[in-house]
Design a protein around this nucleic acid. Structure first.
Length: 320
DNA sequence: GACTCGTGGGA
DNA sequence: TTCCCAAGAGT
């Protein structure tokens, strides 16, 4: 009967941060010369979107809007279009509004305290801690889905973290943080980044690479024989959902320079093959969705309410 | 607490 | 092919 190995925090800190130094990815927002704004933009884009898809969009975004003032001066529709296909386009809207608030309330400088960051639209507990830690070196406790999964396995011995973020998880994450007395938080920040990276590269949700894990010898989940999850994650339905219809409508608006008539966005049925432009393809995808007029109307109204689209006498466009 | 909100790549 | 799910936030 294998028992859970004793917990040696100092050794965990050392082993995981050492692994991170050697194996961590060289991401542009981790560069010492990356601005706090660059870190903030990356954190918005990385909310529920994988790194590989964020990379090219982040590069272009930072070239175009190198500081909050540059984005704040831009029509939000430009941000939504530049957001491209990252998904959850309301994040682009929130990032725009956050930039404007930073200009108005923080003299154009990204604030460093979690409290100030939390007050910004689109910034929740994770993003506030992450910006504070990764952009300013403050020893905040960062808890994201990767860190929760690593803690669940390494410490708690479960295959997966709880379905929803619990207070117990937050408490555990805080207890695992390195002390800040000696180095002022340098190790604490490295620890946050390292555990997150371990979860992203090794301790993955599906088929974790335990053979390459620097702390597999201390892992409670392995010691228990890798028990199955004690619950089954519920999937994210997609086909036929409002999100699918909204996404198809947004693709049309992103691809079009001219206002679109509501009737065109609500049209159903097989579309005659157009000339193959992005706009034609976006219209074809939208029109062939199995959604009735009622659902289409509801989705278009939702986009208008959310501010992802605006209606004028000329028709529907991205916001300006 | 339960839902909603996009997208596309890999298993 | 189908399913899973990824540096969450807001309601």
């Amino acid at each position: 009967m294998p028992s859970t190995p004793p917990l040696d925090l100092d050794r965990l800190h050392h082993d995981i941060t050492t692994w991170f130094t050697a194996e961590g990815r060289d991401l542009p927002w981790r560069s010492p010369q990356c601005s706090a704004w660059g870190v903030m933009v990356s954190e918005f884009m990385l909310q529920q979107t994988p790194v590989v898809r964020v990379l090219p969009v982040w590069e272009e975004w930072m070239r175009r809007w190198p500081d909050p003032a540059a984005l704040a001066a831009e029509p939000s529709g430009e941000a939504v279009r530049a957001w491209g296909r990252l998904g959850y386009p309301r994040r682009a809207l929130r990032l725009c509004e956050a930039a404007r608030r930073i200009v108005e309330e923080h003299d154009g400088q990204v604030p460093s305290s979690p409290a100030d960051l939390l007050a910004l639209p689109g910034v929740g507990s994770y993003t506030a801690a992450a910006i504070s830690c990764f952009a300013f070196g403050l020893p905040e406790t960062v808890v994201d889905t990767n860190i929760r999964r690593v803690h669940a396995r390494l410490i708690s011995g479960h295959a997966l973290p709880e379905p929803s973020h619990t207070a117990a998880e937050a408490r555990l994450a805080a207890e695992l943080m390195p002390a800040t007395e000696d180095d002022g938080g340098t190790l604490a920040c490295a620890w946050n980044a390292a555990v997150m990276e371990l979860g992203a590269l090794i301790c993955t949700a599906r088929s974790p690479r335990c053979g390459q894990c620097p702390v597999s010898g201390s892992c409670a989940w392995i010691a228990r024989g890798k028990p199955e999850p004690h619950y089954t994650p519920k999937g994210q339905p997609w086909a036929g959902t409002d999100r699918q219809v909204r996404g198809a409508m947004m693709a049309v608006l992103r691809a079009s320079d001219e206002p679109q008539q509501p009737e065109a966005l609500l049209a159903t049925g097989p579309a005659e093959s157009g000339s193959g432009t992005d706009l034609d393809l976006a219209f074809q995808k939208l029109q062939t969705l199995p959604a009735d007029v009622e659902q289409r109307s509801r989705c278009l109204a939702g986009l208008l309410v959310d501010g992802l689209a605006v209606e004028s006498g000329a028709g529907i466009t991205l916001p300006h």
